[in-house]
Amino acid sequence: MKVLARKDLPDVLKNWSDSYDVFAPSMKETGDVIFDRFDADTFTLEYGKPSLPQKSEFLPQSEVIFELKKGEYREVMAGSGKMLFGMRACDVMGMRQAGSFMKRDVTDPYYKSKEEGILKVVMACSGPQNETCFCTTVGSGPFAEAGFDLQFYDLGDEFLVEAESERGKQLIADGFFGEIDAAEAGTKIEEFKVHASKAIKEVPALKEAMERLRDGSVSEKVWDYFGRKCIVCGGCAFVCPTCTCFTVSDFQTQPGEGLRVRSWDACLFGGFTREASGHNPRGTQALRLKRRHEHKLLYYNETDVLEGLCGCVGCGRCSDYCPVHIGTLEVVKAIAED
C-alpha cells in the first residue's frame, strides 16, 4: 500500500503516459465525460459512473478479425498497450466475468490479446454514483477485490493506492508515491469500505426475482408487458459490461479482397435467433426479453460469475439508458411484485 498526494495525480498520469497509452476520464465541451487519451486540461475526477463500461477496449463494437487476400483468411490481431485509469469496480467485475466466458473451454484469441495487454487502474467508489447503482447486492463493488493492477481509494487530500499485480507494483515504485504504515492504511481503507458499502442501497427484489425464476413461478404476463413496451434498440445489451454476444460478417472491398468483421449483436433482436429456414425459436419480443434477463439472473454460468452473485454486475446502466424503462431494476421489481 502506498499514498499519493491528490495534487500529484496529473503529474503521475503524465509520467505514465510516456510508457503507456493512458485513457482517463475526460470532460468534454458538451459536459459529457468519456474515457479518452489523458490530457491534463480536460482530466477530471468528477466523472461519476462513466456512460459506458470499458467493454469496447476488450470487445470492440466492431473489429476486423481476418483480412481476405489471395484466397486466404489472414488473422488480424490487435494487441493493446493501454492503461485504463479510473475504472469502476462494477465494470472490473463485468470485464472479469466476460473474460472468463470468452476464455473458457475454447479461448477467444482476440479478446485475450487485448485483455492481457491492458493495465487496469480502479478508482474505488465512496458511495453510489447515482440512484441506479446496486453493486453491493450482486457483490461487484464498491471496490474491486481482484482483476486490477492498481486500485485508488480517494481520501480527499490523498489517495491510498493498492497494487494487485507485479505490473502495478512497478507503477507505484517512483518518488511520487509515499510509504504508509500498513496498520494505518488498513484502518483507513476499512473505514472507507464500510462507509461506501453502507451508502449503497440494497435491492432485495433482485434476489427474490432470482428465486422466482429458479422455481419457475414467474408469469409470462411479466414478459408480455415488457415485450409490448420494448422498442428493440438493443441499448441495454450494448451498455452492459457482461453482454458479449456478437455477429460475424464478411465484406468484399474489391475483387478477391475483403474483411471478416465481428460486431456487437444482441439477443433483443428478432434476427438473432432466426434460422435459415425462417423458423425462429424465440419468435416474440417477450421471449427475447425473457432470455436476456434469464441469462443474467438464472442461466448464468457459476464459473464465469466468479465471486459475483449472478451475470448482472449492478452498474444500473440498462435502467439509466433504456428509453422505455426496461432495466434490470424495473424487471426484478416487476417479477418480485408479480
Binding site: D108, T244, F246, V248, D265, A276, R291, Y299
Partner: peptide, 16 residues
Amino acid sequence: ERMMKCGIGKCGHCAI
C-alpha cells in the same frame, strides 16, 4: 437446430 455463428460457444446466438 439453432442459428449459429461462431461454433465454439462464444457468439451467443444458439443459446438454449
